[in-house]
Design a protein around this nucleic acid. Sequence first.
DNA 1: AATGCAATTGCGAATGATTTGCAAGAAAAG
DNA 2: CTTTTCTTGCAAATCATTCGCAATTGCATT
Lengths: 141, 141
Amino acid sequence: MTTAHERYERFCADIKAVGLRMTEQRKVILRVLAEATDHPDANALFQRAYAKDGSVSLATVYRTLRLLEDKGAIQRHAFDDGRARFENTDTDHHDHLIDLDTNAVIEFRSEKIEKLQAEIAAELGYEIVRHKLELYGRKRK
Amino acid sequence: MTTAHERYERFCADIKAVGLRMTEQRKVILRVLAEATDHPDANALFQRAYAKDGSVSLATVYRTLRLLEDKGAIQRHAFDDGRARFENTDTDHHDHLIDLDTNAVIEFRSEKIEKLQAEIAAELGYEIVRHKLELYGRKRK
DNA sequence: AATGCAATTGCGAATGATTTGCAAGAAAAG
DNA sequence: CTTTTCTTGCAAATCATTCGCAATTGCATT
């Protein structure tokens, strides 16, 4: 299990690795991202960062998000509600089950499904670069 | 196999079923939708409808789209490129493979994957209402 | 510690997709 | 043909996200 602090260090390393500067704003945003265990959207991240440091702007949150996404440090998801949501990529790959009543996001992973996907793509003459599997459902009672 | 004309008739029935009016514009838009075999976005649908009848506006295309989506007659997809794309729901359920180079959308269906998904959701205590499986890949050479 | 300069910021304006308010136009019912 | 109510097109309004730009700030070098 990776800790929030380890994630933060890794983000910093990613930034410096390409000669980018470590600004106050970036530090705050990276920390917020590293601490997130949910799937926040850009505005939620901005709120959290702004609470820690009022000098952070929404534009910079978006810029930092894009930066990290390009480096593969975080992942962007476009669930059915329109706006983009983000999560760390240091954890193992997994898919999502979205609770239609609460909007909660549950992570899961199935080796079998991963394998089947690759097989299907191969049959169609394709190689999978990435995939998105989202189950939308309700709790059974 | 459902024909475009049958689909059109069904759309009309859906509209009239709730006491809505059958206007010229709606007729044109329904026809365009019924004839679509691809996954057009709102603007593409507007272009096609406008070509048939210059009195159709983009706003009405959006309004009609939402109408049909609410009735479950068409389905909205949010692929990773941001804008919404639509398709008829009269065909059997299927998933999508998106060609990253050409943006082409290939449909497929796997019984095994469907079954696995249901199993996974059940394990987590959920019942699937709908799901979305998108493979993003490149042609193998 | 002071200097220089390119990277970075916040702001507000721009964007692109989609929605909405409203007055004018057209169905359906009488 | 009239009335009532639904629909429309247009333009303005949203929403999420991006961009231009002048001001600021890291950071490598003195």
